[in-house]
């Protein structure tokens, strides 16, 4: 083993070398860390996936009382054309009765249209009640067959294990008859 100069011999150089050592390995580490980002980010949704991140829905053919399911980002979205009774029922409910208190006005941009993500907030099943004749649960909204969560006509959780109301997707009304989700 060759003798490395140590102690007093290298003493005056120590400070500069230690500083250089720190700078060298730190810069290298920063570079390596920055290099990781493209690898991680490449696993995020690609441009073609993002381009389909919005869905426009024509509301014209949906009759009062009818509910339809559309697919947005691979997920089911329930669009409910609510009857006056359903709106009335949703609005009359006192907030104290709710597990996740939210007024109906905050859940529907236009009272006659309710747009919610059709995935039970409990464990991810798709609740029943969107098709005519299906079980709608005790509050006339949706009923999740997996673990028995009941949702009302505003998609709010009323009974069962689900912790939250049905989630709302971001949406805007492009016109009176077209809604853009996403």
């Amino acid at each position: 083993m060759a003798e490395a100069k140590t102690g007093a011999q290298a003493g005056e150089r120590t400070t500069r070398r230690d500083f250089l050592e720190l700078v060298a390995w730190t810069t290298l580490g920063v570079g390596a860390a920055a290099t990781l980002w493209p690898f991680i980010d490449s696993l995020n949704p690609a441009a073609d996936t993002l381009a389909l991140a919005t869905t426009e829905v024509d509301l014209e053919p949906i009759e009062v009382g009818q509910r339809v399911t559309v697919v947005w980002r691979g997920k089911p979205v329930f669009i409910s054309h609510r009857t006056p009774e359903e709106i009335e029922q949703a609005r009359a409910t006192p907030l104290e009765e709710l597990k996740d208190p939210e007024p109906d006005e905050a859940r529907a941009q236009r009272p006659e249209w309710l747009v919610v993500i059709g995935i039970c907030t409990h464990l991810g099943c798709v609740p029943a009640g969107n098709r005519a004749g299906e079980e709608r649960g005790g509050w006339g909204g949706w009923f999740c067959p997996c673990h028995g969560s009941h949702y009302d006509t505003a998609g709010r959780i009323r009974q069962g294990p689900a912790p939250r109301n049905l989630d709302l997707p971001p949406y805007t009304f492009v016109s009176d008859t077209v809604v853009r989700i996403g």
Partner: peptide, 9 residues
Amino acid sequence: RDVNWGWLL
């Protein structure tokens, strides 16, 4: 074209 940083990889 579409994958983030795909061209680089």
